[in-house]
Design a binder for these strands. Structure first.
Lengths: 349, 349
DNA sequence: TCTGGTTGGCCAATCGATTTGCCAACCGCG
DNA sequence: CGCGGTTGGCAAATCGATTGGCCAACCAGA
């Protein structure tokens, strides 16, 4: 493992001092070098394949060019991995790398993880949640530039990037309305989280726009609790859909809290002899391609902007640290509709 | 943003030199300090919340305590994120952090990514592929400790961790055989990759064990090409299953290359009026929970050991760098069966 | 008292870069 | 010729830790 070549090697090979090499390679103003020297140094640095030692540079500059990415379970939740992807790519564009820490939701692990990141002199931290929720910024992060991802803080001064749940819900329901539906069931998670309230608000807004009064009987909350965590899974979707579809006035369309619950709705519909989309239209949320394309007919759904959240979060963080221009705020990103095959006009009576 | 406190601050507060502080905190042998001094220094370090500057330490020790994780698309492929998770957790256990680079399969990005990692003085690199395949170790990684994850090299000296495809295929088919099936269809991807050959071998071995001769008519290769990449998607599974199920001697069970193809098989079966598992048993591969639980009945499948691959890869890498004990080899990890509801005895004739 | 060994701890070099301050050479001009 | 102003470049300090070498104090034994 041949020793990596350092600035000294370049200086020696070029017959100048390390100072000069540094000045030239960093394009320092005011400290000019003759064109000839400059070219020679650059050529030799190139030939030798010189690259500055990141640790030494970081030590001197007090900037490590790396940011911490700390999350509870992001790496676990399928689509959420795209947050990391977006963050990584946006960071790489500025020569910044991501230092990954996953806590599994354990507070002690989180505390230690943050300590480790700070010890590595990260320039800032992205604090990401597995699903959109309100969080407290950990104490030991207070004095470090931090941006929340898929999470928001009560403290309005803490920048964050989250999906626009209201717009997402509105878009989904509007899509159904545009196909002629007026009696639309809403299946939500039985949990007090922003996604539930936001999407419900969007649902109400879209209906109100076309003069359909809100009917509480069309809203069903269901969830499955496993090991203390509440899930909107296939089983929950199945139960919710059964309740809605066997009630007095059957809705002609369902807006489901997520794609897995939509899969449950598919099953309930099949059992009841309802064909999708002819007898029943369905819209999901999340756009988990694995689900939405595995079920038949392919599911029309609303996409969470995971990749974009990662990008925006990094952009905000780098703005915070002065690497990039830009403003820093609590930001909401739109959730676009992905139309597939589960929506059609309501059946003729 | 109060300056982090350094070793000097501790030394000053304790009234000793930085040397002594360093010796005490690192438990250096041979350089003793009086019990009294030792306790005082430790107490003060604790009180001040001292943590050594990772950059400075790394610079001096020529060890950054971080390893690079470079991959083509891992962050994109859902379950594969669990590789990262396993790697991260195994690394964190040794105080090592992961530096993430995603190349999207672009060679130039890969080259630059590796350069950046080396520049950061990573102690080693994990080179991960999105799906099990044979790769060349990039030139600029040759002189750095490297372990391949979900990928293998022709060069047998390069350590790697991959799933045991043969055992996985064997396990799946054996599961069907144990339920009484003898006429088992195999749906593979139309690509020349280790997974296809390994799983096919496992299929043949399991059948041979019970004296069933290999019937080429029961093996169908299908795939969908999108933008130059070959996928085993729902559509491919649908086509493959239709071919198998409408052929002369219909199989009583299907072993599908992956869960998405299995989802396609579900659809083909439904169209042909075949009920799963009563008329037809199905086993998938990958255990992508989103798929296997979204379809009905829930899919019995074989799990790829992503998390474990991440763990083992880090363990091997740390063994390679001398941080941990252990041997370094080309390693295969077992793929366990996850039995759900898609397998039953074959229908009585 | 002298010697040799142990104890406790400090000085200064080192890792590899950046940056401040300074100096010498050279230029043109009065 | 002497002077101020530019140009080109170097020496050394600095970032925050680790570590080899060294020294003073103390003690016991001769």
């Amino acid at each position: 493992m041949a020793r990596r070549i350092g600035i000294k090697d370049v200086a020696a090979a070029a017959g100048v001092s390390v100072t000069t090499v540094s000045h030239i390679l960093n394009g320092v103003e005011g400290k000019r070098a003759s064109v000839e020297t400059r070219q020679r140094v650059m050529r030799i640095a190139e030939e030798l394949g010189y690259a500055p030692n990141g640790l030494a540079r970081g030590l001197r500059l007090q900037r490590s060019q790396s940011i911490g990415f700390i999350s509870d379970e992001v790496a676990t939740s399928p689509n959420a991995g795209r947050i990391i992807l977006g963050a990584q790519e946006a960071a790489a564009e500025q020569g910044v790398l991501l230092l990954l820490v996953n806590t599994g939701g354990d507070d002690e692990l989180e505390r230690r993880g943050i300590e480790t990141l700070l010890q590595r002199q990260v320039d800032g931290v992205l604090y990401a949640a597995m699903y959109h929720r309100v969080v407290q910024v950990p104490k030991n992060l207070r004095s470090t530039p931090t941006v929340l991802v898929d999470a928001r803080s009560d403290d309005l001064t803490v920048p964050s990037v989250v999906p626009d749940e209201v717009q997402g819900g509105y878009t989904a329901v509007r899509h159904l309305i545009d196909h002629g539906h007026r009696r639309i069931g809403l299946m939500v998670l039985g949990e007090d989280i922003p996604a539930r309230h936001g999407r419900t608000d969007g649902y109400r807004t879209a209906l109100a726009e076309v003069g359909v009064p809100f009917d509480p009987a069309l809203v069903v909350a269901e969830s499955t609790e496993i090991l203390g965590t509440v899930w909107g899974d296939v089983a929950a979707g199945y139960r919710a859909a059964r309740r809605l579809l066997t009630s007095g006035q059957r809705p002609t369309a369902l807006f489901c809290f997520n794609d897995r619950m939509a899969a449950g709705a598919y099953r309930a519909a099949a059992e009841l002899g309802l064909s999708i989309p002819d007898d029943l239209s369905v819209v999901g949320f999340d756009n988990q391609e694995l689900v939405s394309e595995a079920i038949y007919p392919a599911l029309s759904t609303v996409q969470l902007p995971h990749y974009e959240m990662g990008v925006r979060a990094v952009t905000q963080l780098l703005a915070l640290t002065g690497t990039l221009e830009g403003t820093v705020t609590q930001e909401m990103l739109p959730c676009p509709l992905v139309a597939r095959a589960s929506v059609a006009p309501p059946p003729r009576l």
